[in-house]
Amino acid sequence: MSTSPQHTSPAPTPRQLSTPRAAALAGVVFSVLFGTTLILIRIHMPAGHEDSAQWLQNQQSAITTATVLMPFAGISFLWFIGVVRDGFGRYEDRFFLSVFLGSGLLFVAMMFLATAVAAGLVASNTSVADPAAHAEVMNFGKMVMVSASQTYALRMAAVFMISLATIWLKTRLMPRWLAVLSYVLAVALLIVSEASMWVELAFPAWVLVVSGFILARSGRREE
């Protein structure tokens, strides 16, 4: 009794993933969403301890919108990190790559923390049993939010820029002037991050410029 030979289908061969060009838009999306979030939260924010409750009451809808946008800004920034790392190719440096990834993730974590505190302040503003205690909670929450965003997140953004600029100088993957500009902005963020609450807008503007270069380069490669 003979048995017919069994035909086995060939195992699928793995294919290398390639970064789609649309992923480069992640930096543009982050710049728009993050910049909008900062502006919404910072509108008429008092610099000191006074009028925190009044600011929260007047800008409640704007702050709520900002807390909705921030998670999407963070997701877009993670995609932006992936796109930038993909551009390194075989020029990856383990040391600077570790600093690059770590500072980027810490930046997102600090901004999520600041936005979560803002969301908590909005939620706690609905029912007030003790106005004096509530005012103290508002002041404390606002100081935590400002410290997390301006003191910690901005400095992590500066480290992110410095590590990336160093990789660009070593590999010449980006124009030299862009790497130098990244150093200058990073040093400015490290030094004057607490001088003005609007300094934070320099980082999304920088991401927008970098994303523009990545999009232009990917467009030339496809031609």
Rank of each mutant, 00 (worst) to 15 (best):
L56D: 04
Q16D: 12
A62H: 11
W198C: 11
L169E: 10
M145W: 05
L181S: 14
R85G: 02
T36L: 14
V28R: 08
W168M: 07
F140I: 01
L106S: 10
M1Y: 15
A202R: 04
A114M: 07
F213E: 11
R172S: 12
L69I: 11
V32A: 14
T3H: 14
R217Q: 13
L185Y: 09
A114N: 06
T151Y: 04
N125W: 03
G219Q: 11
V128H: 01
F95M: 07
S211N: 02
L33P: 00
R172Q: 12
S61M: 05
Y91G: 08
V122T: 13
P5F: 15
L181A: 14
R220E: 08
L169N: 08
I167F: 05
M138W: 05
D51G: 12
N125T: 04
G89L: 00
L33H: 09
S182I: 11
L17G: 15
M1L: 14
R85L: 10
A129N: 05
M45F: 04
A11T: 13
L101S: 03
L208F: 09
V209E: 00
S193Q: 13
V68D: 14
Y152S: 01
V192E: 07
V137K: 04
E50F: 13
Y91F: 10
P131Q: 07
F140E: 00
N58K: 15
F80H: 02
V29L: 15
M174Y: 15
Y183P: 05
A188I: 14
L106Q: 08
V122K: 06
T36K: 06
L173Y: 07
V207D: 02
S124K: 05
A11S: 14
T126G: 04
W177E: 15
R176S: 08
M70T: 07
V199I: 10
W55R: 11
E222C: 06
L78N: 01
L208E: 05
A148M: 03
G27H: 04
L105T: 11
A23E: 14
I167Y: 03
Y152K: 00
G102R: 06
A66Q: 09
R15M: 12
S61A: 08
F34T: 05
S9C: 09
F34V: 04
F100K: 02
H7W: 09
L215W: 00
R155L: 08
S127H: 10
L208H: 01
S163Q: 02
P71T: 10
M138T: 07
F80R: 01
L189V: 13
Q59M: 13
G35D: 13
A165L: 02
L40S: 07
S76D: 01
Y152V: 13
T3W: 13
A148H: 00
A165D: 03
S31R: 09
P175H: 14
T13D: 09
A216P: 00
W79C: 03
T8G: 06
F140K: 04
L105G: 03
G219C: 00
V117G: 04
L78E: 03
I214K: 03
S98L: 12
A216H: 11
K170N: 05
R176P: 02
M161S: 06
N125Y: 03
A22Q: 08
L208R: 04
S61F: 03
M1Q: 15
L173C: 03
L201S: 14
F72V: 12
I214M: 08
I39N: 06
I81D: 02
M111F: 15
Y152Q: 01
T19M: 14
G212T: 07
